[in-house]
Design a protein around this nucleic acid. Structure first.
Lengths: 143, 143
DNA sequence: AAATTATGTTAGGTTTAGCTAACAAGAATA
DNA sequence: TATTCTTGTTAGCTAAACCTAACATAATTT
């Protein structure tokens, strides 16, 4: 199902945060999302409108935000990429956790899938797991 | 000298292209820049206006584009980062040249310098040069 | 030198992604 | 239940970075 394509980096960030909030607190509200992303609430509302149009979330007026199946798949894909990069930066390069976290957020969106595949392969070859295999199993359920 | 800071990713791309054009053809014109970045000429003009305000380039009406010292330093820094990433992607991960080129462009701008330092260190430890030492020397002249 | 072509510029518009101020709805409390 | 506080929404603004159409200047060719 194609929804007049481009899910921008920014929108991907929203999806990822919504997924994380659901897993942590079982619900994702506008205010929580705004706090996590350090963004004003009206900006969140605006982004949610677009995500609804794309069929990636569901939300009734004044209600909580839910991911659709497609939205969840998308969010999981991003989070997976985030973890691969974070793992690489911290375990292989020895970058500090804070900086690795920031940088993972920056690059998780746009790199070619070839690059992610090769990076994951590299990590597994080096037997640097960093919870990646677990995450991979997780991922496969969402497929 | 601080010029009301943020040099955005987009502006950094312009600087990098201007540097490359100068080295290849000894001059950088609006049309060449537009072609390289696959962007319309008026967009280039607009960007050049901002780069002028920041003191990173010089250009008289209808004249060619010149980098200031600060602009050249900036451009060289970006290009250096580009090469480190490209080298890593191709030599370490085995990513294809085209994809590596694209992805290097995407991430060269915003990663923390700690990450670049660690990445370079990693490359040198593995004795994967990829012309990096030469580039480093280059770089130092600009300093 | 006039005409043509190539190059540079201006004006004005679009989209994305943020913002503040004001208001509305819902939830909690006195 | 009336009041207050929290949360969600609308309206309207801004800035960055692109665009097209139209025009101006410069360079080249006839």
């Amino acid at each position: 199902m194609v929804h007049s394509l481009p899910v921008t980096s920014s929108l991907q960030d929203y999806l990822e945060v919504i997924l994380n909030l659901h897993q942590e607190k079982d619900t994702a509200r506008v205010t929580d999302i705004a706090d996590r992303l350090d963004i004003a609430k009206p900006s969140v509302i605006q982004a949610l409108t677009v995500l609804k149009e794309k069929g990636l979330i569901r939300q009734d007026r004044y209600g909580p935000v839910e991911l659709t199946d497609e939205g969840r798949r998308y969010a999981m894909k991003i989070r997976h990429r985030h973890k691969i990069i974070y793992g690489f930066l911290t375990q292989v390069l020895g970058v500090s956790p804070q900086v690795a976290e920031e940088d993972a957020c920056l690059v998780e969106h746009d790199l070619n899938s070839e690059t992610f595949d090769k990076l994951l392969q590299f990590m597994l070859e080096q037997d640097i797991d960093a919870g990646l295999k677990k995450e991979l199993a997780w991922q496969d359920k969402g497929k």
